[in-house]
Simulated assay, not measured.
Amino acid sequence: MTVKIWKRDWPLHLMILPGFLFVLIYSYGPMAGLIIAFKKFLPSKGIFGSPWIGLDNFRFLLSLPDTFQIVYNTIIIALLKIAAGLIVPIVVALLLNEVRKTAFKRTVQTLVYLPHFLSWIILGGILIDILSPSQGIVNTFIGWLGVKPIFFLGSNDWFRFTLVVSDVWKEFGFSTIVYLAALTSINPVLYEAAEIDGANRWKQTLHITLPGMLPIIVLLATLSLGNILNAGFEQVFNLYNTAVYETGDIIDTYVFRIGIQKAQYGLATAIGLFKSVISLVFISLSYFLAYRFANYRIF
């Protein structure tokens, strides 16, 4: 029986092979380099020839004055992005759901979805230009209102806000489509019955639309816990500078500076391993909660 199934399904297994090799080479293969976290890595001696130092890199990491501030920055920025990334798409999806002109609705969907396809290198350049305190369009506009120019990308008071708003601007269109798809699964008969009972659009939204969206909202909210330590390296790296390290420096950018710019490979690997272990805990928790509250299962 097994041989018969294999003869029948071998083309499907062959189709999986490229993806399996890709993950094996680029995801599992580099894990051998994690032993650098427990060594005093010397490029001249290589990974396996460098001397072991045990947990010294981790002890040194915990003794650094910036460590806890960087972890705090990462968690705060990630939580703000998760919260805003849930609320804004839901509101936009509800508003678009009330639009009756199909052409206008599709146009808006396309416009809000486009930034998702742009890299942070491109968007970073755009934001630097439009948020410039001297010539940026945003500061020019608020200047007309009598407000002094704001250094969005150079002020610790505004940098996190700028990160969250720009991230939502880039990604909320993609999430909006997910919620709009969830709205199509709600039975139209429920709205007809509610209208006969005298419910206005607000009450229909409150008692029919939102409960109908609740499973996908709970699912996306719980799965987002896995990104609690991913505050967005590409975005922060392209927007931050030394003036906002206090509030904008995150684990990934810190690893880049320590490992690539300062060549402290052992310490950088230790920081990355520390982040990976904590992320694994949050990912496991998120999938448990997704199964518990949204009946979502991987297998």
Rank of each mutant, 00 (worst) to 15 (best):
T162G: 02
V277S: 06
R257Q: 14
V164Q: 04
D167Y: 14
I75V: 15
F141T: 11
K81V: 07
S224Q: 12
R292S: 07
L239H: 14
L127E: 06
T102R: 07
V164H: 07
I177D: 02
I25R: 07
P188Q: 03
F274D: 00
P65N: 15
W52E: 13
Q235F: 12
Y179E: 03
I70R: 02
G19F: 11
F274K: 00
H116Y: 15
V108H: 03
N187C: 03
S284C: 01
S286R: 07
S132A: 11
L223H: 10
V108K: 00
L225M: 10
I5V: 01
I128E: 03
L289H: 04
W144L: 10
Y245V: 04
I283D: 05
V23P: 03
L21T: 04
L131R: 11
T269Q: 05
L280C: 07
Y265T: 13
H13S: 08
L12K: 06
N230P: 00
A93N: 11
W202V: 13
S134P: 04
V255K: 12
I216Q: 10
P188H: 12
L34V: 10
I137D: 12
A263F: 14
I87T: 05
N238P: 03
D197E: 14
I137Q: 12
A78S: 15
F152M: 03
N139Y: 07
L280E: 03
A270K: 03
G259W: 05
H116E: 11
M31R: 00
I36Q: 11
L95W: 09
F41Y: 15
W169P: 07
T162N: 08
G272A: 14
V244Y: 05
V138C: 10
M1P: 09
H116G: 13
I150S: 03
D56S: 11
N57P: 11
V236E: 08
L229F: 08
R59L: 06
I77D: 01
G226V: 12
T110M: 15
L210S: 09
T242E: 05
N295T: 02
